[in-house]
Design a protein around this nucleic acid. Structure first.
Length: 753
DNA sequence: CACGTCCTCCTTTTT
DNA sequence: GGAGGACGTG
């Protein structure tokens, strides 16, 4: 097999050792994806395994599609039959076939986080509890944590330790909320993300025939990013592999960054106990990065206590030192990053694709975006507010969801009075209460509205029910596209958006059209056998926006560090290296938390192949205010030999060694109670206070020479207005902030005439 | 019941 | 600096 020749000895071992339990500890940049794809190819071609019998689980959609492409390129179309996907999507598919065995309809809805939170809010309200004590976020993460550890609501309520915990936190009703939450989900024929895994476990526990069917099918199982699996996921895989025992997990404990979602680093540390005859391979040679970058990364991760021993090394050249850039503000940070990219592109003949800008939180993208736009650099944002989270998209999807599954309470609440049809909050509340108290399906209440609602509202609900019934007939007879198209038109949603002639309204209209296009594509794709609307909805519920980056234009990539895992770029900027931002203040409860943040930093640095930049700003807009920032403690932890201070750096304050004020916790690992930095407004910047009567004007008739006021930048004069597709941009000369180019659909401007 | 305005809270990461 | 909820008015 000549393709094996291109592998180094441990890689080759990992590929060739196909039978029995295998754990591959793969350092960053050690060719992990390569090994996985080769392994699958090897199974199919050298061992004659039917691709149909291989299951390959990944963590993100992005990783799954990347693998799919690579395996197809390597092994041809045959490999396409391999079942490859995220845990959630693979088991959602299985549940769609089997869910009736555990009492759920096969067209069950998948609730996203917003749906879940909204349901929790409604439950807390219904129990007359204080929604400040039982915040949707807190409650949901508590419930989610329980489900990820396979603790049912019954077990939750029976567990004295959990109870003591909740009582200590002054939240004794948590167990009851959990129970009601599950009951309401069940009644709505809905599962949240965690249920997809939880219920798969239930299914496999209670229906051995079903388990056996899939055990027989999946003779070879591979789990990528194993360090990120939670207990629930691990148990599913373990059960599936119990017959053939051909389980291969690939991971790197140093890159475990999903503890907040229940990922348990112990899974990887304990794997050996579960499989005593485990074969372990370590991939330690890094092929991706320069020596400097590998050494810097090692120096970061060395500080962590909980880790498997391994030595990542490289034979690549030394490369440049890491550039440390200090900026005086987040905007300046953006500007420096943009100019640096511009220069590097010219000097080294690089393309936009070679650059990535990584940040800790999605909200940090804004200042960077502005700077890039100003320099005419094309960029794309991965993640963030995805297409499917926009209001207009969720509205249309809610119509489709309710049509397919008229028990879906959250979808119902979204559409019953949108567009307005005279059914107010109190009527909606009455119907929900009726369904709950009489223990009848919501749909029964909706179709018998007059028994529950007086006059006008009752009539309106009647009309609504008639409309939905017509949609249901469409869904049965027609494919997803025709049905959806009809729903968009008949519901009045499309008309409502069409009548909104503002730029935002146009955008929303376009977005809905785009969703319809996506459905058309889904229907036209011969790979999708089930062309019903229900199938499409299921597919889409687990999609973030990764599949949409079809526009393969050359662009600089902006994303959070979390979504950067598995990717590589020639030059990487890690921005916003400020204390409380990275490491995140929300995260810092324990040593483990600090270690996870450090692993995150490790992930960020190891994305870079040739050149790495660290940047931080001394002032930054956060929480809508201008804050003073301290440089991140992480900067001190990097081997100083790897760093060089950039000349562009603002001249205030001194550099490494003196990064930190005395008395703050340093690299000793000590975490004290965090002192909140004073949040005073920097005196060097003039911050505009808008006039008391400030109200953004409609900017449709804005023209050059006009005077305007902006809430942040103050007064300015319009230089020119450009139209680019649907976007209109205005270049404005501000008194104190210089020239800015603003996208008019977002800019809040007051026109002074 | 609809609409406008004010208030409050939340700002971590993903399926 | 955004979203969602509460509250008051028409």
């Amino acid at each position: 097999m000549d393709y094996l020749e291109s592998l180094n000895p441990p890689q080759r071992e990992a590929v060739e050792h196909t039978d029995g339990p295998v754990m591959i500890i793969a350092g960053a940049g050690s060719g992990k994806t390569r090994v996985l794809t080769y392994r699958i190819a090897h199974l199919i071609y050298a061992k004659g395994v039917d691709a149909f019998n291989i299951l390959s689980l990944t963590f993100t959609n992005k990783a799954a599609s990347e693998m799919k492409h690579r395996i197809e390129a390597l092994a041809g179309l045959e490999a396409r039959n391999t079942w490859m996907g995220t845990f959630h999507s693979v088991f959602a598919k299985i549940l769609r076939v089997e869910s009736e065995k555990i009492g759920y309809p096969s067209n069950f809805t998948i609730y996203d986080t917003d749906d879940s939170k909204s349901l929790i809010r409604s439950i807390v309200k219904g129990m007359h509890l204080d929604d400040k004590v039982y915040k949707a976020n807190t409650v949901l993460s508590r419930i989610s944590g329980a489900k990820n550890r396979l603790i049912s609501w019954q077990a939750y309520q029976d567990d004295p330790f959990v109870k003591a915990d909740d009582e200590a936190a002054m939240k004794p009703k948590m167990g009851e909320i959990y129970q009601r939450y599950q009951e309401r989900l069940f009644k709505a024929g809905a599962m949240d993300f965690d249920d997809l895994l939880f219920n798969t476990n239930i299914l496999f526990r209670d229906h051995l025939d079903v388990l056996n069917k899939y055990q027989q099918r999946f003779k070879y199982i591979m789990v990528d990013e194993f360090q990120d699996t939670n207990v629930s996921q691990y148990l599913i895989t373990k059960k599936l592999a119990a017959v053939h025992q051909n389980i291969c997990v690939v991971g790197d404990d140093a890159q475990s960054i999903y503890a907040f979602r229940g990922a348990d680093i112990q899974n990887i540390l304990n794997f050996e106990k579960d499989y005593p005859d485990l074969f372990v391979v370590k991939l330690e040679q890094n092929y991706r990065s320069t020596k400097t970058i590998v050494e810097a990364a090692n120096s970061i991760i060395d500080k962590n206590k909980a880790q498997l021993k391994k030595v990542v090394w490289t034979s690549n050249p030394d490369g440049d030192q890491i550039e440390l850039i200090k900026a005086s503000s987040d905007n300046e940070e953006g500007r420096i990053v943009a100019t640096t990219i511009f220069e590097e592109k010219n000097n080294k003949k690089l393309s936009n694709n070679d650059f990535a800008i990584l940040y800790r939180t999605n909200s940090q993208s804004r200042s960077i975006e502005e700077a890039l736009r100003k320099m005419n650099l094309t960029y794309k944002i991965v993640g963030g507010l995805s297409f499917y989270q926009r209001k207009e998209i969720k509205d249309l999807m809610a119509y489709m969801r309710f049509t397919v599954n008229p028990a879906d309470e959250e979808a119902f609440k979204r559409v019953i009075n949108y567009p307005k049809r005279g059914v107010g909050d109190s009527s909606v509340e009455k119907m929900l209460v009726a369904a709950y108290e009489h223990d009848i399906p919501l749909w029964e209440v909706v179709t018998n509205a007059h028994s529950f609602l007086p006059g006008r509202a009752g009539n309106a609900v009647d009309d609504f029910a008639t409309m939905i019934k017509a949609f249901q007939i469409d869904v049965e007879r027609k494919d997803a596209f025709e049905a959806a198209n009809n729903i968009a038109k008949q519901s009045g949603l499309l008309r409502e958006l069409y009548e909104d002639k503002t730029i935002e309204g146009l955008n929303r209209y376009e977005n809905v059209q785009e969703l319809l296009n996506a459905i058309k594509e889904y229907v036209d794709n011969p790979e999708n056998e089930d062309k019903s609307l229900g199938a499409f909805l299921q597919e889409i519920a687990l999609l973030t926006d990764n599949d949409q980056d079809k526009d393969q234009t050359e662009a600089i990539t902006l994303m959070t560090i979390h979504s950067s895992k598995g990717l590589e770029f020639k030059q990487v900027f890690v921005v916003g290296l400020e204390e409380d931002l990275f490491p995140s203040q929300m995260m810092m409860q324990s040593r483990e938390d600090l270690e996870e943040e450090r692993r995150l930093f490790y992930v960020a640095t190891t994305r870079a192949m040739d050149k790495l930049y660290f940047t931080y700003a001394l002032t930054r807009y956060r929480f809508g205010r201008l804050l003073n920032c301290e440089p991140s403690r992480f900067l001190e932890e990097v081997d100083p030999a790897c760093i060089k201070v950039n000349k562009r750096m603002a001249a205030t304050r001194e550099m490494p060694g003196a990064l930190r004020k005395e008395g703050l916790p340093g690299s000793s690992g000590f975490i004290g109670i965090k002192k909140k930095p004073e949040t005073r407004v920097a005196t060097t910047m003039k911050v505009h206070t808008p006039s008391p009567d400030f109200k953004p004007s409609n900017t449709n008739n804005l023209r050059a020479e006009q005077l305007v006021e902006h809430p942040k930048f103050g007064f300015g004069k319009v230089q020119k207005i450009e139209t680019e597709g649907l976007n209109r941009k205005a270049t404005i000369q501000f008194e104190h902030f210089g020239e800015k180019t603003l996208l008019l659909s977002f800019a809040k401007l007051r026109i002074i005439d």
